[in-house]
Amino acid sequence: MADTTIPEPIPINLVVNGERRALEIVPWTTLLDALRDRLELTGTKKGCDHGQCGACTVLVDGRRVNSCLTLAVMKDGAEITTIEGLARDGTLHPLQQAFIDHDAFQCGYCTPGQICSAAGLLAEGRARDADEIRELMSGNLCRCGAYPNIVAAIEQAMSRS
């Protein structure tokens, strides 16, 4: 006879896009599902749910991570930045504008993850040329094949920051 009970929720606090959010969360809930289903921040995308595509990339305490492989309970107290938190007072983040300028997406589904990942990349300061951007953005799949435009958009944002 299998165990059919479900785990008890645990109270946690997250600071999401600068706003403190209190949640009662079952430990098996990923940060991705907490953002999408509980906080209705559906800008963060689920593309594989296994850390294979990068669509779920968000910044946790300033670092880019796959939110699908992150348990929300383990991030109690963390600061989370999602795609919804990048624009300031209606002004797009330079990466968001650069993605539009360079047509760095088609269907748009990987785009929030690409942009959050690129924001992490800029903060890390490790990419100095196009090849390094390509390598360090390889954790974000784009099935529409916008890669050259994504690289161009990141180069634009990099040169202006």
């Binding site: 921040l41 559906t42 800008g43 999602t82 990048l86 539009i100 748009g108 589904y109």
Partner: peptide
Amino acid sequence: TSRVDGRAKVTGAAKYAGEFS
């Protein structure tokens, strides 16, 4: 011409089938 739905896509405002509540 830049995509007219570009802003919705880069801000996460564009909603896909599994995202309507």
